Simulated assay, not measured.
Amino acid sequence: MNIVKLTLLASIALTSVAAMAQQTIVAASPASSVSFDLYPTPDASQSPREIKVSEAGLPLPVLARQGGFLKVDIGGQPVWIRSAKVRVSRTSTANCGALASHAALKPTASTPGAADVACTKAN
């Protein structure tokens, strides 16, 4: 494997870690929900504790993702929420570094929202 491919793979791996840090729970889903079920572990093996959406302190940064659950911190306590029961905002940015010219030569993974002209300079 040549150095460009290894560098691209490392970049993709680091991007996925950064993308996780950029996810934030912004609302309940459906919007008419008035409470969140908070689980101590990322499964439904234990009964959840219920909290009102208004008391959750939205937005909540996502700390981790496992299965169908998102780990968040509420009141200084790490808890898990079902990902299907929340709306998540994801921010995206374009990376216009040295690898952008190499990536343009072949099909690659992309950043959501970044157009194929995101790294071009305006005249």
Rank of each mutant, 00 (worst) to 15 (best):
G76M: 07
K85V: 00
P30V: 13
F36H: 00
A104C: 05
D43L: 13
A114Q: 00
G97P: 11
E50H: 12
P59C: 15
C96G: 05
K52T: 05
M20I: 12
C119M: 12
A104T: 15
L70D: 09
S45G: 07
S47Y: 13
S29W: 07
K121H: 14
I81A: 15
D116C: 14
G75K: 13
P40D: 03
A10Y: 02
L99A: 12
V4T: 08
P107V: 00
R90D: 04
A122C: 04
F69V: 09
A103G: 07
I3G: 07
S32R: 13
K52F: 07
T41Y: 11
N2T: 08
S110D: 06
G68L: 08
C119N: 14
L70S: 13
F69Q: 02
A118E: 01
V72K: 02
R90T: 05
L6C: 11
L70P: 10
K85L: 00
S101F: 12
A109V: 14
Q46F: 14
S45M: 04
T24G: 09
E50L: 13
S83Y: 01
S101N: 10
Y39C: 07
T24V: 15
L38S: 10
H102C: 03
I51T: 09
G68E: 05
R49K: 11
V34Y: 09
G67N: 08
G57W: 07
V62K: 02
G76K: 11
V117A: 08
P42E: 10
A64Q: 10
P30N: 15
Q23R: 09
P78I: 14
L9F: 01
A27F: 14
T15Y: 12
F36Y: 00
R90H: 11
P42I: 05
T7W: 14
D37Y: 13
L60Y: 04
M1V: 05
Y39H: 08
D116F: 10
A84N: 08
I74W: 08
V53Q: 13
R87N: 13
R90Q: 04
T120L: 06
F36V: 01
P61G: 11
C119V: 13
P59A: 15
